[in-house]
């Protein structure tokens, strides 16, 4: 079985700076980590490999320094790492990102071995869109399984997979064909501690580095800013509310009563509402 896991290196910090002209993130100097949601995807992929045999390839798109995250993923026991990096990718929105990653996954399948499952995290902590996973699935024509809480069974001979998928009001148990794309829900497993041999192997491992051309991308116009239908026009901090918060100055034992008085003074109907609530509670 060959599993590809897409991960993203994200800033691990609230120190965010924005380029004043291009309105894109300036990543220099901000510490980075593997997107925490992606760790559940990595772990699930490793578990499936341990059960069924095969290989796990980690894929990321990003600047050359994203190699660090790939090495980290190798320390958990992944077999291979591919870094997709090219100036043409700069400024990609989710549509352009899914195009580049889908192209690279297709090329990974051709170069190494056919891909059975593609994993991604539920979403990233910097973009929070949850759009790249579905985008990859659609472009590669893979069955799309989002918000998966459990991989119940994989049948490599029958080319089928069963999963539990979180829906709004319950859980859907789904059966579909391989290959498929899974976005893994958080909290569904515990990322393993890497072994010492894996750490040593990760430090020495050769990372596969691909440009857009290496990944089989013929039309770089579909990548980066040019390939992105969305345009960020303005980045801004929200303004404080016009009126300042009314500060309750009382301290010590009077503070609680003073706060309650202030609440009911601002919203006189609230006391009646609370009374209704506690009666029904």
């Amino acid at each position: 079985m060959h599993i590809v896991v897409c991960i993203k290196q994200v800033p691990d910090s609230a120190q965010i700076r924005v380029h004043p002209v291009t309105n894109t993130i300036m990543r220099q100097g901000v510490p980075t980590i593997i997107n925490p949601y992606d760790l559940f995807a990595v772990e699930e992929a490793l578990r499936l490999r341990d059960q069924h045999g095969g290989t796990v390839t980690i894929l990321t798109m990003g600047p050359p320094m994203a190699e660090e995250s790939l090495r980290k993923a190798l320390t958990f026991g992944a077999d291979r790492a591919v870094l997709l990096t090219d100036r043409f990718f700069a400024g990609s929105d989710t549509l352009a990102t899914s195009y580049a990653l889908a192209s690279a996954i297709a090329r990974i399948g051709e170069t190494f071995e056919p891909v059975d499952i593609v994993f991604t995290g539920k979403q990233t902590i910097d973009g929070d869109t949850a759009q790249v996973g579905p985008g990859i699935a659609k472009r590669l024509g893979l069955a799309q399984l989002t918000y998966v809480s459990r991989v119940a069974a994989v049948d490599l001979v029958g080319r089928a997979i069963e999963v539990d998928r979180r829906a709004e009001g319950g859980v859907q148990a789904l059966r579909t064909r391989l290959p498929c794309l899974i976005t893994m829900l958080e909290g569904t497993n515990d990322i393993r501690r890497g072994s010492l041999p894996d750490a040593l192997r990760a430090a020495r491992a050769e990372i596969v580095v691909w440009s857009a051309k290496d990944a089989g991308i013929a039309d770089v116009g579909k990548c980066g800013l040019r390939g992105s239908p969305t345009v960020v026009k303005r980045v801004f901090a929200p303004s404080p509310r016009a009126e300042k918060a009314a500060m309750v100055e009382a301290g010590g034992p009077e503070a609680a009563d003073a706060l309650i008085e202030a609440i009911f003074a601002q919203r006189p109907r609230l006391e009646a509402d609370l009374a209704t609530l506690v009666r029904g509670y």
């Binding site: 929105d93 549509l95 869109t129 759009q131 790249v132 985008g135 659609k138 472009r139």
Partner: peptide, 18 residues
């Protein structure tokens, strides 16, 4: 989100989340 991501990719149009 599952539906919007797939539809926007098929239509090759922009999708802004949340």
């Amino acid at each position: 989100r599952d539906l919007a991501g797939a539809v926007a990719t098929t239509l090759l149009t922009g999708l802004t989340a949340d």
